[in-house]
Design a protein around this nucleic acid. Structure first.
Length: 480
RNA sequence: UCCCCUGUAGCUCAGUCGGUAGAGCGGGUGGCUGUUAACCACUAGGUCGGCGGUUCGAGUCCGUCCGGGGGAGCCA
């Protein structure tokens, strides 16, 4: 181990004098040194001479084996409550393990195991076997103690930091865009209303609400996107990104939707659609590589138990060059394929998920970036192309998941922007500050958004989005 | 929101033609073993999601409500 790691580890030890994390202990050469451990018991097995515990503290997938030598331990009755789920502190010595499945293990010192909090076995819900994810969702307060949810949690943490690192290393500023917005015209889906008006009383009285009496003096909502605000900062900081919670009140109950999710939205000034694609491609590859490198144990677990072959698949994508095609070329490729689709292909339609999958999995066998969609099926703020028919939209499609990124070059020409707002039957007055940015120092700029949980699903292979966020909020579900 | 599936022991499920309930795991007890999803034996554990209907009789058939899952749409 390099000196720097040892110093870091000693630093951690001094901060938390009582124990090392199990991840750090596994890095040590076993030579009978004293090592304290704090964690929760995953399994207990007993033999004639020994009791074996596996202790997990969340720092690794596999816990450390603690061995009790029954003859020399002393009072064994204190271990009666050392059962699955119990919190324990262990004083032991680190020794090489004669067993097959671990390099080192902890030999408990006499009376060296202290049960801090016991765990009655009659009703402890977590058993030493596979549980359904549906069941685990009902015990979201205990599910991070399982192998899968623990691995998801560590991968999620690593990916969060990889995302920040990607942008920070490239000089992007992290911008905190507002959670509450008074604009209901962002057009990205149903919004949750935020109010301090006494709605129960209003309902009884039958009166309609007077929003001038509401907290902000006007209707307000939870944000569905930080993009418009991110554009403000991009037009002064050049490169910025947001990474925060986002809310959609859609009544959709699927394995890919949440009412509350985390979204990443970079926004770059002096950046056209090609520049946008460069950043998006580098971004995806960076996250994949970092996760594969830094979470090897967890990723092997997903590869074995959740989605066979996912390691190879992610590795390939992280080293590939993404295909770049226009919407028009995509439509032609689908038409020429001769494949039968539930939704027939024609220019002007939006690509359905079956089409996206066909493009990535059959036609190009890898990630595809599709640009220049018909203006009718995209938002008003996307830059109108010279053909007046298409806009500078960008979708990044990957095998297995489909669309992972949606973005565009933004319309930076004031007159065109106003015209597009009017064409969409929106009121330019509502966007006065957005238009103002096109009056003072406007510049071509671009950005994209991606749902953090979707990316975690893609990387882990987890089927249901509710299992990659600690506390999922969906229709009729906000327990915990 | 639409379509399909599903609800039986703490968990995962079986339950035939309508005749008052079964397995594995988990729990408890005992045994065996440097064990590792440990193993073996015994044992306890059920208002079959709720309500209503058909029937001599409903876990089983019908209606309805509630919960869960999958797919679609929409999206991230």
């Amino acid at each position: 181990m390099p000196c720097s790691s040892i110093f870091r580890m000693m630093g951690r030890m001094n901060e938390h004098k009582k124990s090392l994390r199990i991840r750090d202990i596994f890095q040590l050469e076993p030579k009978n040194q004293e090592v304290p451990v704090q964690g929760w018991i995953r399994t207990r097995r007993e033999s004639k001479q020994n009791i074996f515990f596996e202790i997990n503290d969340g720092s690794t997938l596999k816990g450390i084996q603690v061995v009790v030598d029954k003859e020399n331990y002393g009072d064994l009755s204190s271990l009666e409550s050392a059962n699955n789920g119990a919190a324990v502190e262990v004083q032991g010595t680190l020794v090489a393990s004669p067993g097959k499945n671990q390099r080192s293990e902890l030999l408990a010192k006499p009376e060296g195991i202290h049960v801090v909090g016991d765990s009655p076995q009659e009703n402890y819900p977590l058993q030493k076997k596979r549980h359904s994810f549906e069941f685990l969702r009902e015990i979201a307060h205990l599910r991070p103690r399982t192998n899968t949810l623990g691995a998801v949690s560590r991968v999620r943490n690593t990916m969060s930091f990889a995302i920040h690192r990607f942008f920070q290393e490239r000089g992007f500023q992290y911008i905190h865009t507002p959670i509450i917005t008074a604009s209901d015209a962002e057009g990205a889906g149903e919004m949750f209303q935020v109010t301090t008006l006494p709605i129960s009383d209003l309902a009884k009285s039958g009166k309609s609400p007077d929003y001038q009496q509401d907290f902000f003096g006007r209707p307000s909502f939870l944000t569905v996107s930080g993009q418009l605000e991110a554009e403000i900062y991009a037009l002064s900081m050049k490169n910025v990104y947001t990474f925060g919670p986002t809310f959609r009140a859609e009544n959709s109950n699927t394995s890919r939707h949440l009412a509350e999710f985390w979204m990443i939205e970079p926004e770059m000034a002096f950046c056209d659609i090609d520049c946008n694609m460069d950043v998006a491609e580098d971004f995806i590859k960076f996250i994949l590589k970092t996760t594969l490198e830094e979470r090897e144990e967890d990723m092997n677990f997903f590869n074995q138990w959740i989605e066979k072959g996912i390691l190879d698949s992610l590795q390939r994508v992280s080293e590939s060059t993404f295909h770049r095609i226009t919407y028009t070329e995509a439509i032609k490729a689908l038409e020429d394929s001769g494949a039968k689709f539930d939704y027939p292909v024609s220019w002007g339609m939006d690509l359905q998920s079956e089409h996206e999958k066909y493009l990535t999995e059959v036609v190009y066998k890898g990630p595809v970036m599709v640009t220049d969609y018909p203006k009718e099926i995209k938002a008003f703020y996307m830059k109108l192309n010279d053909d007046e028919k298409t806009v500078g939209a960008l979708d990044v499609l990957v095998p297995r998941l489909g669309e992972i990124i949606g973005g565009s070059q933004r319309e930076h020409r004031k007159d065109v922007l106003i015209r597009r707002i009017q064409e969409m039957d929106l009121d330019p007055e509502d966007y006065w500050w957005y238009i103002d940015l096109r009056t003072y120092g406007t510049v071509p700029h671009s950005g994209f958004g991606l749902g953090f949980e979707r990316v975690i699903q893609y990387v882990t292979g987890m089927q249901n989005i509710r299992d990659v966020i600690p506390f999922p909020r969906t229709v009729n579900s906000a327990e915990f």
